[in-house]
Nucleic acid binder design. Structure first.
Lengths: 110, 110
DNA sequence: GCTATAAATAGACAACCATCTATAAACCAA
DNA sequence: TTGGTTTATAGATGGTTGTCTATTTATAGC
């Protein structure tokens, strides 16, 4: 996933050649699906604006008006594609953005 | 949608303030959902690599192994969020990428 | 008008997903 | 160990969506 979508298309020799490999399309799709949810976009924005750019899950339920398991579910989805990272400090688990992964998405559309 | 997601977060004064407006999150989500599908990513790549960077729907069914209505369905989704544009020339309808819209996505993750 | 081709629509169906409640697991402090 | 707090998991449910077949609409040529 080191080339963007448009240049990826150039890998094939002609306009009637094979399409982008399905497996690669599914990889990119999985990453984008994780971001393409309104609640997860709000979660990412909340983390980004928090002090030290990290939040614990319990700080997200209130502003978003969602149950704790629902927030946990979304954070798991974001962690699965490595868009957020978790770090346990005592009772709390702190979530932060993986900016490398973030900019990889930007590269896809550059 | 003229600021990216991370700076959008800065609009709020403190870490306990309101989250990103739900309506805005849903707008961005709708755009990203349109791209976050493996078949639609393949369609976009096929259009990008085609001669003159445009394809008619009938050129997509073969390489992707999908029915004509399914391709039509995906092209409609992409057109709804203005990621592709359509132009009728006789019997065929030619689809091309809206690169302005494309780069707007890149801006979100810049 | 008739026929052929391209694209869109309608309707059906299976798979996926966001959310909830209820419960369990992990951790800290007495 | 007991109790309180935070996070994760299990299971259920309603809504969304990708795909298909069948049909309709639009255009071109005879």
């Amino acid at each position: 996933m080191n080339k963007n979508l448009l240049t990826l298309a150039d890998c094939a020799p002609s306009s009637t050649a094979e399409p982008m490999a399905r497996a690669k399309a599914e990889d990119i799709s999985a990453l984008l699906k994780a971001v393409a949810d309104p609640t997860r976009l709000q979660i990412l924005a909340l983390i980004a604006k928090a002090d030290l750019q990290e939040s614990c899950a319990c700080d997200l339920t209130g502003p978003l008006g969602l149950s704790q398991p629902t927030i946990s579910h979304h954070l798991k989805k974001l962690a699965e594609v490595e868009l957020v990272e978790k770090q346990r400090r005592g009772t709390w688990i702190w979530y932060s953005l993986n900016k490398t992964r973030w900019s990889q998405i930007a590269q896809l559309f550059a």
